[in-house]
Simulated assay, not measured.
Amino acid sequence: MADDDMMLMQMEDEEGTTFGAEELAAAGEAGEDDDELEPLENVGTGNLPEFTPVDPTSLIEVEEVRRLPVPPHRYTPLKQNWEHIVDPIVNVLGLAIQMNVKARKIEIQNCEYTTDSSALQRAADFVKAFLLGFDLDDAMALLRLDDLYVDSFEIDDVKRLQGNHRSRAIGRICGAQGKTKHTIENALRVRIVVADSKIHILGAFTNIKLARRAVCSLIMGTPPGKVYGQLRSASARLATRY
């Protein structure tokens, strides 16, 4: 055996390959270099996919049509306000609209000038609100604001009433000369339409919920004075929230 100073330590791996001490030292230094972390700004920037922006007009289906039936009692208001209804739908939303006299329906369709994919739905909500009985200015708010909705329900959904009982329930909702209905509208910033046994409410989600609760209380027989007290507290909560 040679001298200890000249002897190289050898190590045999699992496959039987031998490594000298100098080779092991060099491998250890290389391993220390590999343990160094890559800078954070370079992490995840290797092979990221590149997505091109989507053209909003590509999401619009030109053949999509909305047909809204016109109730008989809304023909006269529709004729009187037809120009005011068509103007924002055509000039602002870029849609095509026509009145199908034979089918008695209003047809709204996308066209080549439509640039917003939600324009058709907004126009349909606007026209539907007008056909339900809301004023033109109130219905047009659906075109300007995004958080307005229309909720509809019937008196029978709350309580089944027959004959004079239903008439008295409608009278409690409206009040003398519409006083109760106007109080609910002004306190909760909503609009209410009472069409026989059907009730339609236009407003924000939270306001509609409070207004519907007040109307249901009147249907169940709660005196208007008690409902006024509930409206005052609800109006105060809305004032602090907004």
Results as ranks from 00 to 15, higher is better:
Asp13Glu: 09
Lys226Asp: 12
Asn110Gln: 12
Val227His: 03
Pro39Asn: 11
Phe126Glu: 02
Pro224His: 15
Ser58Val: 12
Ala214Asn: 03
Leu131Glu: 06
Tyr113Thr: 15
Asp137Ser: 13
Asp138Trp: 07
Met220Cys: 08
Thr76Val: 14
Leu37Val: 11
Leu131Gly: 00
Val127Leu: 07
Arg172Met: 05
Pro72Thr: 14
Glu29Asp: 11
Val43Lys: 12
Arg189Met: 06
Phe51Leu: 15
Cys111Leu: 10
Asp87Thr: 14
Glu22His: 09
Val190Asp: 02
Val70Tyr: 01
Arg144Glu: 14
Ala204Met: 14
Ala129Gly: 04
His73Asp: 12
Glu63His: 11
Val86His: 02
Thr45Asp: 09
Leu161Arg: 00
Gly163Tyr: 07
Arg67Gln: 13
Ile192Ser: 01
Pro49Arg: 09
Gly229Val: 12
Val70Trp: 02
Thr240Ala: 10
Glu22Pro: 02
Asp151Lys: 11
Val193Pro: 01
Gly44Trp: 07
Val90Ile: 12
Glu50Pro: 01
Ile184Asn: 00
Pro223Val: 11
Gly163Met: 12
Ser117Ile: 14
Phe19Lys: 04
Asp196Leu: 05
Arg122Ile: 10
Pro53Gly: 04
Phe153Gly: 01
Ala141Val: 09
Phe126Lys: 05
Arg74Phe: 06
Ala141Thr: 14
Gly221Lys: 10
Glu14Met: 09
Phe19Cys: 04
Ala26Tyr: 09
Asp151Ala: 07
Ile89Gly: 00
Gln80Pro: 00
Glu61Tyr: 06
Gly20Tyr: 03
Gly221Ile: 11
Asn42Asp: 14
Leu210Glu: 07
Glu112Cys: 05
Arg212Ala: 05
Ile85Phe: 01
Ala119Cys: 05
Thr183Asp: 06
Asp135Ile: 07
Asn207Glu: 13
Val101Glu: 10
Leu8Asn: 11
Ile199Asp: 01
Glu23Gly: 04
Leu93Thr: 03
Asn91Ile: 10
Ala103Cys: 06
Ile201Trp: 03
Leu218Tyr: 06
Glu107Asn: 03
Ala96Gly: 10
Pro77Ala: 06
Leu148Asp: 04
Lys128Tyr: 09
Leu37Tyr: 07
Asn186Asp: 15
Ala21Cys: 06
Phe126Trp: 07
Val194Asp: 00
Ile60His: 01
Phe51Arg: 12
Ala169His: 00
Gln98Met: 14
Asn164Met: 13
Pro77Phe: 04
Tyr228Ser: 03
Glu23Tyr: 13
Lys159Ile: 07
Leu48Gly: 05
Asn186Pro: 00
Gln98Trp: 12
Gly203Gln: 05
Asp116Thr: 10
Arg122Tyr: 09
Val90Asn: 00
Arg191Met: 08
Asp156Arg: 14
Ala169Met: 05
Pro72Lys: 14
Ala123Val: 07
Ile155Tyr: 00
Ala96Met: 11
